[in-house]
Computed example of a mutant assay.
Amino acid sequence: MTDTIKAEFEVLDERFRSCGGDQWLVRLHTGDRWTEGPAYFPAGRYLVWSDIPNDRMLRWDETTGAVGVFRSPASYTNGNTVDRLGRLVSCEQGPRRITRTEHDGSVTVIADRYDGKRFNSPNDVVERSDGSIWFTDPSYGIDSDYEGHWAESEIGACHVYRADPVTGRVEIVADDFVRPNGLAFSADERLLYIVDTRQSPSHIRVFGTGEGGSLTGGEIFGTCDQGVFDGIRLDDAGRVWAAAGDGLHCFAPDGTLIGKLRLPEVVSNLTFGGPKRNDLFITASTSVYALRVNFNGARPRP
């Protein structure tokens, strides 16, 4: 059963005035505890997301509108992405690892340790065109039993990592974050944007990417004026969309906050989907929303 909510685009800069779409947000599902990690599968025309405290993942079928359980228990999965071969890559906060669900449904562990020590609780994940898997590792899944299993950190800090799914090699790419969270590459992969949720104020940093995946820079790109930033995505104009306390915040490529898409719940994450990547799917507290927009999500490099 779906309902609709008035879509409110708040223009803060004239560059945002061209952003729009349907007049109504469609609430695809509600009744979860904390939704996260939306991932859209074009081949199957369905959306998967995490309901972390309930230890399950749900699936919405675009062709029928039906919502059902995709996986339960789900290892307290948080962030998800779809790799270039159409497989689900997930951050499992329970067993503290990155996994890939194969086409036959089997699960492959990509990484679960760095230097022999278990990760804290992988949070969000993206794939680069070379096949490497990049992910953040804050401590939310081990801070309590609410979204995982309480435990002491073995690493003793919260870093950003790159994993090679072929060799299994894991490297730290950024080690100066308090609580790294959402991350996203620019379409040409020359830039990597990473959220630090627990800095005051919560902000997005931007890094240049060098040969072999090394990062340079790390300047603050944008700060949050309502709640904290969480998941982020880029559109095809290079704008950065960030989940925040009052909805989605939109930043121009130069870091100016140009507008907001207001939502009635705290937003955790977002992704673009649909045949043209112009369906915006948003996970927000207890619900999942969809909005057809007049712009497109950034298309990953092949």
Rank of each mutant, 00 (worst) to 15 (best):
A252E: 14
R71E: 07
E265T: 01
K276D: 15
D112H: 09
A237H: 10
N80K: 15
V288Y: 01
D176C: 02
L234H: 04
D112G: 15
R71G: 01
S153K: 10
G238P: 13
P38D: 02
R71H: 03
R292A: 14
D51Y: 14
G255W: 10
L85K: 13
Y193R: 07
G227P: 00
R118G: 09
D164A: 12
G131P: 05
Y146N: 08
A66W: 06
G297T: 08
R17V: 11
V125L: 04
P95G: 10
D104E: 09
V267Y: 01
S287P: 09
G208V: 05
W241N: 03
P275M: 10
V160R: 00
A111D: 01
A187G: 08
H103W: 06
H149S: 08
A290R: 14
L215Y: 02
R96K: 11
G116N: 14
W34G: 02
G168R: 13
D3T: 12
I194Y: 01
R239H: 12
R97E: 03
A7F: 07
A187I: 05
Y140M: 13
K276R: 15
G245S: 10
G245T: 09
E14M: 07
P138C: 11
D61F: 12
T35M: 11
F221S: 03
A43S: 14
F207L: 00
R96M: 06
F221D: 01
L291E: 03
D196S: 04
A290D: 02
G65P: 13
S72N: 11
E62Y: 05
F207H: 10
T223W: 01
S186I: 05
T256K: 06
N269W: 02
R190A: 14
Q93C: 05
F177P: 01
D236Y: 00
L47W: 01
K117P: 13
